[in-house]
């Protein structure tokens, strides 16, 4: 399973969520790609992430399965992954 994490260097919510997602990646042994909203504009645009950050897109067998938008509690995030693993 792979996740794409879209955040921005200036975004406080992204800073808050970073450690949580780092642990999730370790826990579920995920492949993780990080994109910056401003500096990786060419890769981010096609993803249509909207105007709220951070955004985490979850892919399974190269197909998008779910998106997690903004600040979430750890248990809320784990519930999403439990459903996909």
């Amino acid at each position: 399973m792979k996740i794409v994490r879209v955040s921005a260097i200036w975004c406080p919510s992204c800073i808050l969520m970073r450690p949580i997602y780092d642990e999730i990646v370790k826990k579920y042994n995920l492949e993780s790609e990080e994109l910056d909203f401003d500096f990786d504009e060419d890769k981010v645009l096609p993803l249509n992430v909207g105007n709220k950050l951070p955004v985490v897109i979850i892919y399974k067998d190269n197909e998008e399965k779910a998106r997690i938008i903004g600040e979430k509690r750890r248990d809320e995030i784990e519930k999403v992954f439990e459903g996909l693993v």
Binding site: W10, S13, L53
Partner: peptide, 17 residues
Amino acid sequence: EDDGCTVTDAESRKKII
């Protein structure tokens, strides 16, 4: 809405960046 950073006014943000 979800809590999180709202991306607004791309032009002025890019200028500052």
